[in-house]
Design a protein around this nucleic acid. Structure first.
Lengths: 117, 117
DNA sequence: TTTTCACTTAAGTATATACTTAACTAATGC
DNA sequence: GCATTAGTTAAGTATATACTTAAGTGAAAA
């Protein structure tokens, strides 16, 4: 799987890098230029631009150029599918543990009943 | 960033592949052997084992070998940091939009007040 | 109008991913 | 014991990542 074709692939991959997560955190505080995104990161500008490209390809960020500055911002709702996927897994898994707990409780009850003391 | 050192790096990276997400989905329905995880995937067993290694390195899955079969299961709570990170970003961003909305509403109100009709 | 600034493009490198096949090990089942 | 099964290890390959430096481009400031 080297293509990262599905939307979730791209979003999770985008989130898997601390520099990109840092850029996203910055953008939650409002739009920013490429240089502003780059400032706290210890890497070259082109490297930051490449990270930005990953973020845009994932749909998490959009940008537009005005004059010579490119302004970036979060794309509302783009995190939702990822959040939802995780949430569904957690729910499914919790339900399963609940059922398992019920089962074990019943088994214990049966055991208490069938072989008392 | 080629090391994927932080826990979030590893978790998000683990989630960024459809085969691995498929394995996780299978595991939400209960523990499974390596062969069971491999069955629906069209790739060799060693490839599946490598994906499993990524899942284990991320902390999402644990496994133990009994006899000749390795049984895998989800590690409870391991998804929480990822879910929480996303959730915090969404909240921060929604708060910002709220404030922006308030600001724009106030500006509009001032405008209505200052230059009526 | 010349310089500076904010990117952008190109090209190259080291490392990591996602696989493959082939050969091996060890527990089961007969 | 001997074949089968479940998984492991090793080694190799193609592609993708995460950077780098150097050389543009074009808007804005001086």
């Amino acid at each position: 799987m080297a293509d990262a074709s599905g939307p979730l692939d791209r979003v999770f991959h985008a989130l898997a890098d601390p520099a990109r997560r840092g850029m996203l955190e910055r953008l939650t505080r409002g739009p920013a230029s490429v240089s502003e995104l780059a400032r706290p990161l210890s890497m070259s500008l082109p490297a930051v631009v490449q990270h930005l490209a990953v973020l845009e390809a994932s749909g998490l960020v959009i940008s537009a150029k005005h004059g010579r500055v490119r302004t970036c911002q979060l794309e509302p709702g783009s995190l939702q599918p990822a959040e939802q996927w995780i949430n569904e897994r957690r729910l499914g898994w919790e339900r399963r543990l609940d059922r398992l707990g019920d089962y074990l409780a019943r088994q214990t009850a049966k055991g208490d009943e069938g072989s008392p003391a």
